[in-house]
Design a protein around this nucleic acid. Structure first.
Lengths: 233, 233
DNA sequence: TCTTGAAATGACCATGTGGTCAATTTATGA
DNA sequence: TCATAAATTGACCACATGGTCATTTCAAGA
């Protein structure tokens, strides 16, 4: 494996906490975690401040550097936590809906996405910051991982739909997955901005309105991709 | 009009340069402009440094603060420049393609978008940073403006397609525009990340590959939205 | 209770920040 | 050439940063 530019200048830092962090009582660990997630969500990697993090966590700076070797490493750990949670959520909803009809499934995935964003606005924010700006140590590698994971997820749904005869066997899975992933991501990202600032009211911010949007978007996609495509074959 | 929180603390700063900036020779003004666009593109509003900007521009910090009253105001000016250029580009391509068939038009818009990104990577980067993170003074207002402008643009194309009989008259313009805008934005944003770092190679970074992707995406959308939809009516 | 190792602290370091302004330099017109 | 207004400078200010480490505090075990 080719050593990255980072390692040329500095020993590789794994996105891992020190064992001292794991020795902490759960309550304290959670309090510290909330503090750094919140700060990185709001400011992004570069503009976030270790001083602000320790203030909010109620610990000293020496302690924070005892638990994580550097700001760099702390952010990588934060990213890992955020991404792990996002993947778990997607995996759960995929599992829960695996026997449903493709478009019903897609609709439930969108709805689950909205719930995730409302439940974990800061994790979502970290995820979107990295996905859209690439601002992170190992940014390039992370972007590739995020895009690959996201496309694999949607492509697996499309393939399942084809298998079950709900989508045409002649469909271009890559492009179809790309379009669906675009819609899903765009919608969730916009809803996320609404959650951060309800005054934005992009495309209707209320729960009722977002549910209606989801239904209508899915209905339109069903109309385009579903029976009509089948009929024309 | 309700005074925003900003004005409670500080006089409203218009996103405008001082007259001293306009008095400068064009070459010097362009050099300074390049310096702050580059820094804001790379670092975002908060993490960008006025010290770095003046270093790159080859002027003193006092001068920069003579031309712009604050970092805040400089960024708002930068956003205005970027957004104005993006809108001009979109307006040009819309005008050039106004008599073409809807999907051909959409394809040309995607291609024009790729050209814009290659020609103005830093303007594109500023645009995407604000659009996806909201990190900007007056972030909420700007986000609403960007979303509204973007949706108006696509919706106007869809309406034109309906007028010309290229799209079904029963189409849901809002949702259709949303889906198309999602695909357009996602594709361009990914290509933009490829331009920033060709090693990413997301969905094929080369010109040939991105052209092929555009053709196939548009072909799929045509298949979904075009004749098939008409036939089913 | 005392010893010892582990955990925690926060002053310190070198460097950086946004913004100011007294002093200097430049350009223009008489 | 000289006077004057405009433009420019960069040291300075107060504050902030990431990271370090000598010192203090705490916890556990004998």
């Amino acid at each position: 494996m080719v050593i990255s530019r980072i390692t040329v200048r500095k020993k590789v830092e794994k996105p891992e906490e020190t064992e001292q962090f794991n020795h902490l009582p759960v309550e304290k660990r959670d309090r510290i975690t909330e503090a750094f997630i919140s700060e990185f969500a709001k400011k992004g990697f570069r503009a976030a401040s270790m001083n602000k993090i320790v203030e909010r966590a109620g610990i000293s700076k020496g302690s924070l550097f005892n638990y994580f070797n550097s700001k760099n490493q702390l952010f990588m750990y934060t990213y890992k936590v955020a991404f792990k949670r996002v993947k778990e959520y997607l995996r759960e909803v995929r599992e829960e809906t695996k026997d449903e009809e493709f478009f019903t499934r897609f609709q439930k995935i969108m709805e689950a996405g909205v719930r995730f964003i409302k439940k974990h606005p800061n994790l979502a924010r970290i995820y979107y910051r990295i996905l859209y700006t690439g601002d992170s140590p190992e940014g390039a590698a992370i972007l590739q991982e995020l895009h690959a994971e996201s496309m694999r997820f949607i492509a697996s749904l499309v393939e399942r739909g084809v298998e079950r005869g709900e989508l045409s066997g002649e469909i271009d899975v890559d492009k179809t997955a790309f379009i669906l992933e675009s819609v899903l991501n765009r919608f969730l990202q916009v809803q996320h901005q609404n959650v951060l600032d309800p005054s934005l009211n992009l495309y209707g911010a209320s729960s009722e309105e977002s549910e209606k949007w989801i239904e209508e978007l899915v209905s339109l996609l069903r109309n385009w991709m579903g029976e009509s495509s089948n009929e024309s074959n």
